[in-house]
Design a protein around this nucleic acid. Structure first.
Lengths: 337, 337
DNA sequence: TAGGATTGTCGAAGCGCTTCGACTAGATTC
DNA sequence: GAATCTAGTCGAAGCGCTTCGACAATCCTA
């Protein structure tokens, strides 16, 4: 391993000078800088991460806490994780991957040991166990997701409340009066996961305002679960003509089952999905959907975090405005005749 | 931040004694140990990661290099990543998430800076750029995936050659003679990704041995791409009755399109998928499939790596044997009458 | 042209931990 | 009962870096 001292010797300067060349915290003459940089190149020097962390009290590592539940839609998590990693690298940070398994202890361990400078908790519950720790910590954090109380926190999320409202409005405008919501798996609601509950709130309050009837049914993914759920929906509200689907792995099953029952989309039934654009476009019917801007969320979270780490940056809640794209799965409600 | 020295003082012992209590590298009397452990508890001590890394030359971090391409099936990657993180934690390691973006430089950076003790490269190409660096490095690594030349390397992967063979055998046994392979996206082959090419080899050589006719078509996911691909297949080989699908996001489109064309599965056409079990069971037709043991791969990789880090552990190639589960998507070939 | 500000460089002191050698007591040996 | 072990503990020397204060040398400004 090449050390700072060896680089210094090779370049004929002191160790501190090399350090200042690297960090740019003091001005260095152009000639010296070049000499040092050449030595670094030639020797293939890489600063030792541990030594740096010890001396500077900064590890240049951001901890990303992903859920390990399998009832969350993986591709979205993955996309966020990749966006976080990519953006972090662009700012000189590496990303440590923590699973939900450790729970709040992970926060203690990581901040206590100085392993990471900052944290990005995902899969935030409304009254998340980690919140007090995050609030009380000197290390900054940015949540991806929205808890009930955001005081003293920085959060990034799609505005799921507005998303729900938007879906309802779209269907209302097309004349639909009876709307069924195919929600996430029951476990997601039992955990009081922020995004799921907020979506529901948005859906409910807007449909109340618009005088629509709303039926919410959580649903595990897959054909069997969807089949049972769908039967129940039409049983309870035969007049249902609009669907809002939030569970990605229920989308395709729903479309197949509707088809199978002879209900045409969008002639008889309209479907609005809340899912990544890619999925909406790859489905068997191009789906009218509100996109989940996974990349954007990951990127924004890191940018907020880096701002905090650099001193500027304040607590704020960034709610990305939902965008509804009309595709082939929604249309005017069938006439009631 | 509580330091080792403070714990030592609190417990009335020297710093080195606390260190030995923590590491267990020298014997400590039961009474002293208890006193120290109680102090650690009371003070809420967490060893500083940087200092530890500097002094011991071990970071207790494993770097996981995931692809950032979107043509790979994300859930599998995610599942592997989570298994890696979970297993690593169980062995006292944390996981650093690196994306493919940096390429081989990531290997240099991470090993050069001592950021990670070991690496797990994923998405391995047959002649991967990273291989020489890994071979020449003093830091151990375990690849998830199989390059062309494995000398001096440790690898874990599903035996994709055997997987291909198994799919063909299954269809052959059912009397199918003309088989179409719906492969991964073209880019995957262009990069010479190990698993895709090995599957193809297995499919081809076994069908040659069994006297079957094989048509391989790469395919992007989604309905449009699948629709075009399928049309070409039946155009070129109208007698096709068996499908092997390796691209997860082509599975559901294929089933829908076949249905739409009035070809019943499995009466007219049999489909064998290479995909995670969950997907096979959630599809609109329960799929006969060879499972991709994502968790197992992640777990095994970490275990091999930990063995190497602890001194025992040798270079070896672990090929997990494929298992084909017969479900509802495959059946006897229709009689040629 | 003297005084103060600015620029570029160095030396040294740590950051918090691990680990090696040394030391003390008691246990074991012949 | 002297010689030898062993178990348990300590002190001190680093690991490779950052950063502070000090110091020359150069630059203004009046």
């Amino acid at each position: 391993m090449v050390t700072l001292a060896e680089v210094a010797q090779h370049a004929g300067v002191s160790a501190s000078t090399v350090s200042y060349v690297l960090s740019g915290k003091r001005s260095i003459s152009a000639s010296t800088r070049q000499r040092v940089e050449r030595s670094i190149q030639q020797l293939g020097y890489h600063p030792n991460a541990g030594a740096r962390a010890l001396a500077s009290n900064r590890s240049n590592i951001i901890a990303l806490m992903i859920p390990l539940r399998t009832d969350m839609y993986m591709p979205v998590m993955m996309e966020i994780a990749i966006a976080v990693a990519t953006t972090a690298r662009a700012h000189g940070y590496d990303v440590l991957l923590l699973t939900g398994e450790e729970g709040p202890d992970a926060v203690r361990r990581v901040t206590g040991s100085g392993l990471a400078d900052a944290m990005i908790p995902m899969d935030v519950e409304l009254d998340d166990e980690r919140l007090p720790l995050l609030r009380g910590s000197d290390r900054p954090s940015v949540l991806i997701g929205l808890p009930a109380d955001t005081t003293g926190l920085t959060c990034v999320d799609l505005d799921f409340g507005a998303t729900g409202a938007l879906c309802v409005e779209h269907l209302a405008k097309l004349g639909h009066r009876d709307i069924a919501v195919i929600g996430e798996a029951p476990g997601v609601y039992e955990r009081h996961t922020g995004f799921a509950e907020r979506t529901l709130d948005g859906l409910r309050s807007r449909s109340r305002e618009l005088g629509l009837r709303l039926l919410h049914r959580p649903c595990e993914g897959g054909y069997d679960a969807m089949s049972v759920t769908l039967a129940r929906v039409f049983d309870e509200r035969p007049s249902t003509t609009g669907f809002v689907v939030q569970n990605e792995s229920a989308v395709e099953p729903l479309l197949a089952l509707l088809r199978q029952q002879g209900r045409a989309v969008p002639e008889d039934v309209s479907v609005v999905a809340i899912c990544p654009d890619q999925l909406a476009m790859q489905a068997s019917v191009r789906l009218t959907s509100v996109a989940i801007p996974a990349q954007e969320m990951g990127r924004r979270a890191v940018e907020l975090l880096v701002a905090k780490l650099e001193g500027h940056g304040t607590d704020e809640v960034v709610l990305l405005p939902p965008e509804l794209t009309v595709r082939a799965s929604s249309g005017p409600a069938p006439s009631t005749s």
